[in-house]
Simulated assay, not measured.
Amino acid sequence: MAPDPTQPFRAMAYNNAWANQRLLTACLALSPEDFVAPRTGFFPSIRATLNHILIVDWFYVDALEGGTLGPAAWADREPCGTPAALLEAQAAVDRRLIAVTEAADLSRIVEVNRFTRIQRDRMDRLLLHLFQHQIHHRGQAHAMLSGTPVKPPQLDEFFPEAEAPLRAGEFAALGWAEETIWR
């Protein structure tokens, strides 16, 4: 059987959702003050950084789905005021991204509404850009979290075999199994 070229993109979408779930679940333990406290990073707080990830996901996932949301995604720079609200909203857009990668035509040209122009790019390039963006800013939020009383969770996809039951439990809570990702 020939390799499936969409498989790496699918695996990245699942890993992205899992990492977001782990990070945002850890953030649920933050005090409201720690969540909004000024911190060093591209954005000035954990809340601002995580909301930025969400907004950019809305922007690109909408385009990947054929939508025209465009710059309207930034109408509210911090649409979610709590970690719980972010967890729910991020999980919803992560499910949409997984669905996009499940049915991906990687060579399809995607139109991205940039307000003053329409950017046209291949789906595979936009997906790679989006995954890079998520990893970049999630890493910043992770570093910010290390400056709070809450221990930052492991976000790498590598886990020792001894932790397989933990991973299986987290995947089950998300409605998946490793076979879903690696089929």
Rank of each mutant, 00 (worst) to 15 (best):
R114C: 06
R114G: 07
F115P: 01
F115G: 15
F115V: 13
F115W: 15
F115S: 12
T116Y: 12
T116R: 12
T116Q: 08
R117N: 12
R117H: 13
R117S: 14
R117T: 15
I118M: 11
Q119K: 14
R120A: 04
D121Y: 02
D121F: 01
R122H: 09
R122D: 03
R122N: 02
R122P: 05
R122L: 11
M123Q: 07
M123T: 05
D124F: 00
D124S: 00
D124Q: 01
R125L: 01
R125P: 00
R125E: 00
L126F: 02
L126P: 00
L127Y: 01
L128T: 02
L128N: 03
L128Y: 02
L128I: 02
L130R: 05
L130A: 06
F131N: 02
F131W: 09
Q132M: 12
H133L: 02
H133Q: 08
I135Y: 04
I135D: 03
H136K: 07
H136V: 06
R138W: 02
R138I: 04
Q140F: 01
Q140V: 02
Q140D: 01
A141F: 03
H142L: 10
H142V: 06
H142G: 10
H142C: 10
M144R: 08
M144L: 07
M144F: 07
L145K: 06
L145W: 04
L145Y: 03
L145Q: 07
S146T: 14
G147L: 10
G147A: 13
G147Q: 13
T148S: 12
T148P: 09
T148H: 06
T148N: 08
P149D: 10
P149T: 13
P149F: 05
V150M: 10
V150C: 07
V150S: 08
K151N: 15
K151A: 13
P152M: 14
P152R: 07
P153V: 02
P153K: 01
P153T: 03
Q154L: 15
Q154Y: 15
E157P: 07
E157K: 11
E157A: 14
E157L: 11
E157G: 13
F158T: 09
F158L: 13
F158V: 11
F158A: 11
F158N: 08
F159S: 15
F159M: 15
P160T: 12
P160V: 12
P160L: 13
E161Y: 05
A162V: 11
A162D: 05
A162H: 09
E163D: 14
E163F: 11
E163I: 10
E163G: 08
P165T: 01
P165H: 06
P165R: 08
P165N: 05
P165V: 05
L166G: 05
L166F: 07
L166C: 09
L166E: 08
R167W: 07
A168R: 14
A168S: 12
A168D: 14
A168I: 07
A168P: 08
A168M: 11
A168W: 09
G169I: 04
G169L: 06
E170G: 03
E170H: 09
F171D: 08
A172S: 10
A172V: 11
A172T: 07
A172W: 07
A173Y: 12
L174C: 05
L174Q: 12
L174V: 12
L174P: 01
